[in-house]
Simulated assay, not measured.
Amino acid sequence: MPNLPRSSVGSDRRPFDEAIKERLDLLAGQRGVKVKELPPTAGTSEIIDKVNELIRLLQG
């Protein structure tokens, strides 16, 4: 994920708004790789792997 540019009063907000939209699209699964759901029978190691996958997605 790209870093969010700083927005200041009187500046063009477009880069800031586009970066926010891109992050929201990633989280919503509308852009990039979709995160698959775990089965109801998932064990501890599968849950840990899924949490780590989400962390990697959020931190880029």
Rank of each mutant, 00 (worst) to 15 (best):
Q30D: 11
Q30V: 00
S45W: 09
E46T: 01
P5T: 09
I20M: 14
I48L: 14
E18V: 04
M1E: 06
E53P: 01
D17I: 03
P39T: 15
E37V: 06
L24P: 04
P5N: 10
E53D: 09
L38N: 01
S8N: 02
S45F: 10
I20K: 13
G29L: 05
L58D: 12
I20R: 14
L57P: 02
E18P: 02
L57K: 02
L54G: 14
K50D: 13
S7L: 09
L38E: 02
Q30T: 04
P5V: 03
R56G: 03
A42F: 02
E53A: 04
L27A: 12
P39M: 15
R14P: 04
V35K: 04
G60W: 03
T44W: 08
G32F: 03
L58C: 12
L58S: 11
F16N: 09
F16Y: 07
A42V: 03
R31S: 11
R23Y: 02
I48M: 13
D17Q: 08
G10N: 11
K34F: 14
V35N: 04
P5W: 07
G29T: 00
G10R: 07
K50P: 05
L38G: 01
T44F: 12
F16S: 09
K36V: 00
L24G: 05
L57E: 00
S11I: 05
L58V: 03
I55H: 15
M1V: 09
N52T: 06
L27T: 12
P39L: 15
M1W: 03
G60Q: 14
D49P: 05
K36I: 00
S7W: 03
R6E: 14
S11V: 08
R6Y: 08
T44K: 11
